[in-house]
């Protein structure tokens, strides 16, 4: 315990972990909402797909901000830029592939 006595302060106050519990409830609610939209409703396929992908993106953002503390650090610009670049390449890969292959499917 000696070696970190003078370093960082305890940063989370005691008490009920509201942020984490709300994150969990939102994740579960969005998961069941997506299931209900896909299985329970009979919307046109493209409407269903748009809605469930939108819900997945919201859920990813919940993980990112409520559990992964993406905005923390002494200089967050590097990790945010790296992440945005990763998301951009992932999106270009998936959307680009589907767009090109759409003509042959």
């Amino acid at each position: 315990m000696q070696e970190h006595k003078n370093t960082a302060v305890e940063s989370e106050p005691a008490g009920f972990p509201w942020k984490q519990v709300i994150g969990l409830i939102l994740s579960l609610a969005l998961t069941f909402l997506a299931l209900w939209i896909a299985v329970g409703l009979s919307l046109p396929v493209h409407v269903t797909l748009t809605l469930i992908v939108g819900l997945a993106v919201i859920q990813a953002l919940i993980q990112l901000f409520m559990f992964m503390h993406v905005l923390e650090g002494t200089d967050t610009s590097h990790q945010i830029l790296g992440l945005i670049f990763g998301i951009f390449v992932a999106f270009a890969m998936v959307a680009g592939t589907l767009w090109i292959m759409y003509f042959t499917l």
């Binding site: 993406v70 650090g73 200089d75 590097h78 990790q79 790296g82 992440l83 670049f85 990763g86 998301i87 390449v89 992932a90 999106f91 890969m93 998936v94």
Partner: peptide, 15 residues
């Protein structure tokens, strides 16, 4: 910060 960059690369792998 480096680990975030690794996760971004993992994201590309899964994509």
């Amino acid at each position: 910060v480096g680990f975030w960059i690794f996760l971004a690369a993992e994201l590309v792998l899964f994509s």
